[in-house]
């Protein structure tokens, strides 16, 4: 059964087209991602799914219901983690969960019973009486996620869940999200981090300028739109385009970036040997597996984070 079904979904703000006719279907239990740079239309899409932003065109159902007529019913079964935490700073940590649960019409006993385990899950038990302002960025994010889980949602929407967090905090957060996934919660997230999409998503769509430019599992997207490995070469030149000639023919495809060349190859080490054999000596060379970043570069001609 699909929890979300969008056909030709559009969102416009005046003349500006934020989402330009996308088709998406998310099944129960899936982990689904919207990957794209800032301004690709991810957040607008998420807000339409969350029934807080009216659909401008096309069709959208969430849990089989129309957000226009059943907003409250949809929201009752959703957990929403917005891009900015928007925690209630006038309340303490535990109170944020208690009060939020009451918004869902849960009884005090229900809310109280759920708060403890959720604080535990968010690793905030010791902080339960702390002032929200005193929490670190990672803690606030975990509290926001815990808050979104208070109504035991079957679908969790996460908008840029780890943007702005340090690497350690990101890994802690990913670990929490893995657990939810394992417990059968359907995750829908947006991100502009490839590693995040690769870590968390079973399936994803790549968005650019309000449209979907590719769809599939991270692995299949890489297989389809990039090579197995990538050789990165840096030279001591102002413009790396000057050196493209010297590596011609080695790779299936070469991308010129401001500070390096990317050679898309099946065998990175082999390609590096060939480069050396030609008498070309870069400042540095790096062989890595192809990633979604490469997919995005291929599809749009731009990198994800600029």
């Amino acid at each position: 059964m699909s929890l979300i079904r969008a056909t030709g979904l559009r969102k416009t703000f005046g003349d500006f087209v934020a989402v330009d006719g996308i088709d998406v279907e998310v099944a129960a239990g899936e982990s689904f991602g919207f990957l794209g740079p800032n301004g690709a239309g991810k957040t607008s899409t998420m807000r339409m799914i969350g029934a807080t932003s009216p659909v401008s065109g096309g069709e959208l159902t969430v849990f089989g219901m129309d957000p226009a007529s059943h907003a409250s019913q949809i929201k009752a079964r959703l957990g929403v983690v917005p891009q900015t935490d928007a925690l209630d700073e006038e309340l303490r940590v535990r109170e944020n969960l208690l009060v939020y649960g009451r918004y869902f019409g849960l009884t005090r006993e229900q809310v109280r019973a759920r708060t403890g385990p959720l604080l535990e899950f968010a690793q905030l038990t010791e902080k339960s009486d702390a002032v929200v302002e005193s929490l670190s960025g990672g803690m606030k994010r975990r509290l926001t996620i815990a808050r979104a889980l208070i109504n035991e949602p079957s679908l969790l929407l996460l908008d840029e869940p780890t943007t702005g967090l340090d690497p350690q905090a990101r890994h802690v957060l990913w670990d929490r999200l893995f657990r939810l996934k394992r417990d059968g919660v359907t995750l829908v997230l947006t991100t502009h981090y490839m590693d995040e999409a690769e870590q968390l998503c079973d399936r994803l769509v790549v968005m650019d300028h309000g449209r979907i430019v590719a769809e599939g599992s991270p692995r299949s997207l890489i297989a389809q739109h990039a090579s197995r490995e990538v050789l990165e070469l840096r030279f001591d030149v102002a413009d790396h385009a000057e050196r493209v000639e010297e590596v011609a023919g080695i790779a299936e495809r070469v991308e010129v970036l401001a500070d390096r060349l990317l050679l898309y190859v099946h065998d990175g080490d082999g390609a590096l040997e060939t480069v050396a054999a030609r008498g070309v000596h870069p400042l540095s060379a790096l062989v890595r597996r192809a990633s979604l970043e490469d997919v995005f570069l291929r599809l749009t001609g731009r990198s994800l984070i600029e």
Binding site: R77, Y103, F104, G105, L106, T107, N151, E152, P153, S154
Partner: peptide
């Protein structure tokens, strides 16, 4: 996992009619 779809009228509600539960 899904819980009640609408705000259940709070049991304690005394001064407020049902429409005021939310």
């Amino acid at each position: 996992m899904a819980t009640g779809t609408t705000a259940a009228p709070a049991r304690h509600a005394l001064p407020f009619p049902v429409a005021m539960a939310r």
